[in-house]
Design a protein around this nucleic acid. Structure first.
Lengths: 210, 210
DNA sequence: AGGGTGGTGTGATAAATATCACAGTTTAAA
DNA sequence: TTTAAACTGTGATATTTATCACACCACCCT
């Protein structure tokens, strides 16, 4: 398990009692890069707080399509799993580990309790929803208004923000995340290379622009 | 101003003190159908709680495009205006009155105060974010995975849920809300009519399917 | 070294959507 | 009643994206 000191670094604004309650009731879990942590329609039995590594959140189609929405990093929580009412606890999203990860799994029975007990938990939940809400707005902005070339650029920038200028993804990976086909991505990347925005390698490329 | 009794009907789960604080500090405002209540980039100076009528929330493009996301009805609040931290209070959305409306405008200075004072306000904020978050997920699902014909059907169903089977919108209205062109909507509606899903009139049509 | 696999490049074509042009039709206003 | 404005229908065409087909190349495996 984690120490209180580690928790305090990850979640600096919590109350003392909340740290203790987390240590007491949460389970520290691990998963390997690539693992699916949550699927569309799956029942949510615990909240997920990221401790180590990065998670990618997707909107998932009935027919297997995926659309990447945002990353979750240490100190952040998966908004959908922070259910406050036990009724409709079906996941609307797909969550995948990008790297090897560690996360705290907190049984949802504590959600209601903590909302009543810890102000800092309340704030944490609100902050989480608010920031994820904003990410979703950005995603809608992209997908509702932009063509694939601009969406690809936006996607790469998010990737670069997370992992640096060397993007270690195949064209197929990117195509899956943007719900399009590899050929489209290949051609657009080629165009970016011609424009001097990227330098391509096998299985990866470097973002140069700006 | 409203009476406490009216407030209790609209927001049944609040604490007594919250009702009083709202009556004391909120301003009851009105707007006509079609009025723009909030624009992209606009500074948010007050939270909006719907009292009467219906508001439509849009994602707005820099170049004037719009994409309809969801309706707000009496008893509901605009999530984006429930800012808890005063820093980045720029609106990401466009809000329009669909009907004549009344709403409570609450200066954002009270947000922080009420979060500290009223548990029911805390719950209200979380509930608001949660339900809007889910609406956004549905919107992403439509726009990322569906073709225009399915998106149009989904759009009409939302309209029908709000205002009944007679849809009083021009093709241009719908095209604006779905960020496409009137011709596309006209042709798709024609197809729906052939399929017996709708019965078309001028400036309106009836939803028949199912 | 040879062969398989996965990643990439690219033409050809199809499908979905956007855009332009214009005609017809209903409604509202003069 | 005439006229203008708004709404609708529809062809033609352009653009964007999806799909199919296949060639090539780098790397790993034995």
């Amino acid at each position: 398990m984690l120490s209180i000191e580690q928790l305090k670094i990850l979640f600096p604004d919590w109350e003392q009692g909340l740290y203790e309650s987390v240590l007491e009731n949460a389970e520290l879990k691990e998963a390997n890069a690539g693992a699916v942590l949550l699927k569309r329609g799956q029942n949510i039995k615990s909240a997920m707080l990221v401790v180590e590594g990065t998670i990618k959140l997707y909107q998932e189609d009935e027919e297997g399509g995926e659309y990447f929405m945002y990353h979750l990093n240490p100190g952040e929580a998966c908004a959908v799993t922070l259910v406050c009412n036990y009724h409709h606890e079906q996941s609307q999203v797909l969550a995948k580990a990008v790297t090897d990860i560690k996360f705290l799994a907190i049984p949802i029975t504590f959600m209601e309790k903590w909302l009543n007990t810890y102000k800092s938990w309340h704030y944490f939940v609100i902050k989480t929803y608010r920031s994820r809400y904003e990410e979703l707005l950005k995603t809608i902005h992209e997908v509702a208004f932009k063509n694939m070339d601009e969406r690809l650029e936006y996607y790469i920038k998010k990737q670069v923000d997370q992992f640096g200028v060397t993007v270690k993804l195949t064209h197929q990976d990117i195509a899956n995340d943007l719900n399009t086909s590899r050929e489209v991505i290949s051609r657009l990347l080629k165009k970016m290379e011609h424009n001097g925005w990227i330098k391509m390698n096998r299985n990866a490329f470097d973002w140069i622009k700006k």
